[in-house]
Nucleic acid binder design. Structure first.
Length: 200
DNA sequence: ACCGGGATGTTCT
DNA sequence: GAACATCCCGGTG
């Protein structure tokens, strides 16, 4: 099947519906492309873990805009993380892209991520995949449907898995019991669960 | 393998 | 000040 960009209406639904359907779609960035193998849904209205939960701020404005755009935020003062904006204009929601299986541009990704020892380390985390693909602040608000800023999501004919693992989200401290993380079963690029810091 | 700690901007209390 | 949708490196077993 010839690759096609996803239509706007694909994104204009609840993030928890869009997220598992994004598995096996292809994210294109400045440095290359990768198959989406891990995602998390964040609902801006009812979900205290969402950046948009407290309302519209300069940082979260993109999430309140039209669906199909990229919401890019700066994490821990070090990394960029990329989300796909969902739902309709005025209602916030997003899907965090957590891991990719590299497809093309692997050489450029290796240059962009010198710390990656193996190719499976290139895109196996939300900060890693942005560094590998060259996604940063300049892509916040970019339209994935028109691929305006060099970023886009396409369907190349690989269906979303019907046996994706559905579990709780990673790295948050509220709503930790909500099962809004999905990943491709057995894929080596899926991020490792962060080590629990020792509690007092 | 596991663990501790550092980096470091933005947002919120 | 503290928390944060993270990642990397170095020490120890």
């Amino acid at each position: 099947m010839k690759p096609r960009r996803l239509p706007r209406r694909f994104f204009a639904r609840d993030p928890a519906v869009v997220a598992p359907e994004l598995l096996n779609k292809v994210l294109i960035g400045p440095n290359g492309a990768g198959r989406i193998v891990e995602v998390e849904a964040y609902d801006g209205t009812n979900d205290p873990a969402s950046h948009a939960y407290r309302g519209l701020t300069p940082r979260t404005a993109v999430m309140f805009g039209p669906p199909g755009h990229l919401y890019v935020y700066f994490s821990y003062g070090v990394h960029w993380c990329a989300n796909v904006v969902c739902r309709h204009d005025g209602v916030a929601g997003a899907v965090l892209l957590r891991a990719l299986a590299p497809i093309s541009g692997v050489e450029a990704m290796r240059v962009a991520r010198p710390a990656a020892r193996r190719d499976r380390d290139l895109c196996s985390g939300p900060g890693k995949l942005c560094q590998a693909l060259g996604i940063d602040r300049g892509h916040d608000g970019a339209d994935l449907v028109t691929a305006d800023g060099g970023v886009g999501v396409v369907d190349d004919g690989v269906a979303a898995p019907d046996d994706a693992v559905n579990t709780t989200r990673v790295g948050i401290s509220v709503a930790t019991d909500v099962p809004w993380r999905w990943y491709v079963r057995g894929d080596p690029n899926v991020s490792r669960a962060p080590r629990r810091t020792k509690l007092a």
